[in-house]
């Protein structure tokens, strides 16, 4: 082999390695910069206190609480529906049927729809159509549900995270061996009994991974809740489904772009970003670990 060729090859391999390490480097820089910026402000009190002085001081407890509430309501909606869809796709649908393929296409489409579109849909469907409809029918037109609140925001977020759950659960269901299903059926179990007693328990880890990934996604997304329920500042925590709520991601956005004094609140912003980043990071890491174990088991 000629010397020139060897050098070209070396350069090319070096370039690919450089690209890979560049990405890793940016990830590390991002993590480090956010942590350095936020670590001095970060404390137990910061997590548990309310904002003070027009959000110039104090903690972020309401934002954490609101985010937690959001993902809980979201999961209650997304996880069962996602799991059931995954069960349909693996257990009931014929792989090649038009219906199954259409559902798969819809799921993938749902995963690529920009999150802001979900926000618009939440506004147009949940708030203006369902919410106003409920007000008209049950409250004689009195405005209660026809405005942004945590329920509509959570349901909007549930639509966004539905594909995440479906994909994870489907992958897990496929690792339940056919032999187990056969054993169950041969014992005189019906299809549903087999699914309920063998398939679902066998895919518990997948359902958990799906839930974790969905929670992580839901905790970090801001665009869908911009106008479906997130609030700037609230003096009290949400107590009803028709209340608005504060949210970590939204808090970061507002503080960084619309705060009265961006520079003065910079430490709070960094600390809030650090909290959100750590939260999603830990959730994702957990999911990655569970999933890689699952994949190894499948082999």
């Amino acid at each position: 082999m000629s010397r020139k060729k060897a050098i070209t090859g070396g350069l090319f391999v070096g370039l690919t390695a450089f690209s890979a390490f560049l990405i890793i480097a940016v990830i590390i820089i991002l993590l480090v910069v956010i942590i350095i910026g936020g670590k001095d402000t970060f404390s137990w009190e910061f997590l548990t206190a309310f904002p003070e002085d027009g959000m110039m001081k104090g903690g972020i407890f309401p934002a954490i609480y609101g985010t937690a509430l959001l993902v809980v309501i979201m999961s209650v909606a997304a996880v069962p529906f996602g799991t059931i869809t995954a069960i349909y796709l693996t257990e009931y649908a014929h792989e090649k049927s038009i219906l199954a393929q259409t559902i798969r296409f819809a799921v993938r489409t749902l995963a690529t729809v920009p999150s802001i579109i979900f926000g618009l849909f939440g506004l147009g469907f949940f708030i203006k159509f369902v919410g106003s409809g409920m007000d008209d029918v049950f409250l004689g037109g009195q405005l209660k549900w026809g405005q942004p609140n945590i329920l509509w925001a959570s349901l909007t977020m549930a639509l966004l995270t539905l594909p995440v759950v479906i994909v994870s659960v489907e992958e897990a269901i496929r690792t339940v061996p056919r032999e187990m299903r056969e054993a169950s059926l041969a014992l005189g179990a019906t299809k549903w009994e087999t699914i309920r007693r063998i398939v679902i328990p066998g895919s518990r880890s997948g359902i958990m991974t799906g839930t974790i990934l969905a929670v992580s996604r839901g905790a970090g997304e801001v665009a869908p809740i911009l106008f479906t329920g997130a609030a700037y500042y609230l003096a009290t925590l949400p107590t009803s489904l028709s209340d608005q709520f504060m949210n970590l991601g939204y808090h970061i956005y507002i503080m960084a772009t619309q705060s009265a004094n961006v520079d003065q609140t910079l430490p709070i912003q960094f600390a809030t970003t650090m909290v959100l980043l750590m939260l999603t990071f830990i959730l994702n890491l957990t999911a990655v670990i569970i999933r890689s174990r699952l994949r190894r088991k499948a082999k």
Partner: peptide, 17 residues
């Protein structure tokens, strides 16, 4: 379903739950 309760089966590869 009832037929399989009457006609049981043991498989080649043991398949405990």
């Amino acid at each position: 379903v009832n037929l399989r309760k009457k006609v049981g089966m043991v498989f080649q590869k043991s398949n405990p739950f």
